[in-house]
Design a protein around this nucleic acid. Structure first.
Lengths: 192, 192, 192, 192
DNA sequence: TATGAATGAGACTTCATTCAT
DNA sequence: TATGAATGAAGTCTCATTCAT
């Protein structure tokens, strides 16, 4: 039953998000689903296996933001361009809040165990960002003085900082439209 | 013997940095120091106790950057102001590379166990940043339109993003002067 | 369906022979047959039940060698007598190689669980050997000095040693005629 | 403490001999020694690790029989020669009855897991037997018609058959002098 | 007859912590 | 202060067997 697998994934997302990888135990996940321990292992080979599924799911969701984004120049200035993209990411992060918590948290923490998975994911992200960077350069949106590295660091750094603090650590509601507006404004001023 | 305690802290920094909190075992730390397991518990109540010591040490070091920084306006524009401050942080992070790795990594990962410590630390950081923000506003370095939250997110986000990727994840040497120059330039444009 | 039960037995023989009793899992057997796990339990009460079936099957096959053997004295000396009998056993072991592997291997290994079955089997074997022994004594093929115990040990010991090493552990083809010739020669010299 | 390790080995020998490898659990061994489970793992990495220790111990003991045996021809005929050697083995097997049970039983049963260890051991045994065989040929104790393979099969086969049935499976006391006398007599007649 | 998802007891192993010396 | 052997709770995972369909 594919539903059962999905149930386990959903429970995993909740528990991993609440307690972190190492403080999450299979017992907690199966209790949440309401199944026996053995059942978990019908669908996943190990705790690690489930976790890798979550990484891959996040990767897929995240990259779709780029894929769904049309790189066109009609009536768009850089500010609007960045704003739309940031809004896309914020929506995804908000919709998949728990999954996002897990990835942002463990990507940097459990690298001993999932280093390869996270590295692959980071590389894919950077490749997409590079496409964006090239597009912006070619269409004169940003100056050639801007190095890709720092463009990426600024973009990801501010975005993740906002996500972490506004979405994940904070209890209050996160107004993503406002955030996308403000950050795109700063980024626009910083790099155009 | 205070030296013995310091030896344990140093070994802890190395091992925690290399393997992460949950993959670090007391056995590895005491082996590095060359003492018996029991001896560890003469100086620290638990593994957690040692780790909290490291958080506090980092906090102290980090906040000193603010303390050592003179908030004056002589001949300084915002760009230079930010550049000097960033350079200060980069120097500290580079000097205490392993300790920085630990904090940046686990601050977000192990909150189940150290949530309170990290929250306290974050609050102190924000209070200092707030002082800086007020100073910049009062002296017309930045516009009143800039909200504190986004100022902080941008400043910390870019800085930590660069630290993580240039200092921690990358093998190459990290040219901190160049980084401080570039990032302060972007920030200056973004918020002035 | 008797065929279905036989299919399971055949798959069991293959897998038990290849992996041993404890390393064989029901999952492997049913996969080989191409049936579901539940189906296995329609034909056998347990893994142990299947295994006991195999022991009984081997016992039946083995004892038939004695039954098919005519104890007559026409033109036969002891050497020829023993040679024919050994050849009979070798043929059976070769024909039922996997079953033989299982029995020789586990007879001695899993006695905790199958002790009773194997003991019963050994007793039957010894009763047939005793008939043979009496026949040989009564017809002056062997001296009365030869005790039954040692006759049996020598006969079974050499035979099983050859089976184990030539048939089971070795990859090369096993020339059973040559083996029967040589061993019967030694046995003849040893006990006549 | 080397004594503690030896205690575990002794308990392991008893339990493995009584129950077989797969039916022996660490819990039973540590209970016999009177220690906690964790203590077991201070001395052995795993159940398998302990078992391999036992294989090596047996190998050492067994090969010493050959080493302690002087290959000289003074006043010895083949019968006496073989009798002395068999007696040597029987003494060792009797002295180390439980260890012998384990090895004879599992050598053939658990090859999936300990195949390499047992193969190495069998090779060493055969090398020593080959030395003996050459010595017997060179000193005209046995005819050149006797092939090594069958010499080895007969020697080991009868010996192990006796060991298994008289020493291990039987409850009665095993008169090793009588057994050595009889078997050496048969072997002498068979191969001289 | 046949299925196969589900079960759960119980195995092995880890490692922070203790305590007698 | 210092030791390090010992502890044992608790974790992950296995697999023969069951049972509703």
């Amino acid at each position: 039953m594919a539903d059962r697998k999905e149930e386990i994934i959903q429970a995993g997302i909740e528990v991993f998000a609440a307690r972190g990888y190492y403080n999450t135990h299979i017992a907690q996940i199966v209790e949440k689903v309401g199944i026996a321990k053995g059942t978990f292992y019908l669908y996943f080979n190990s705790k690690k296996d489930l976790f890798i599924s979550l990484i891959k799911r996040h990767e897929k969701i995240f990259l779709e933001v780029f894929d769904n984004y049309t790189f066109d120049t009609n009536n768009k200035n850089l500010k609007i361009f960045l704003e739309e993209m940031l809004l896309g990411f914020f929506k995804i992060y908000k919709k998949h809040k728990n999954l996002s918590i897990i990835i942002l948290r463990e990507a940097v923490a459990v690298n001993e165990e999932f280093g390869d998975e996270f590295k692959r994911m980071e590389e894919k992200r950077f490749r997409r960002l590079q496409d964006l960077y090239k597009f912006l350069i070619e269409n004169n949106y940003i100056s050639k003085d801007i190095e890709f590295d720092y463009f990426a660091f600024a973009f990801l750094g501010i975005m993740e900082s906002v996500i972490m603090r506004k979405l994940i650590l904070s209890e209050e509601d996160f107004n993503i439209e406002e955030a996308a507006d403000k950050i795109s404004d700063y980024l626009n001023k910083a790099i155009s």
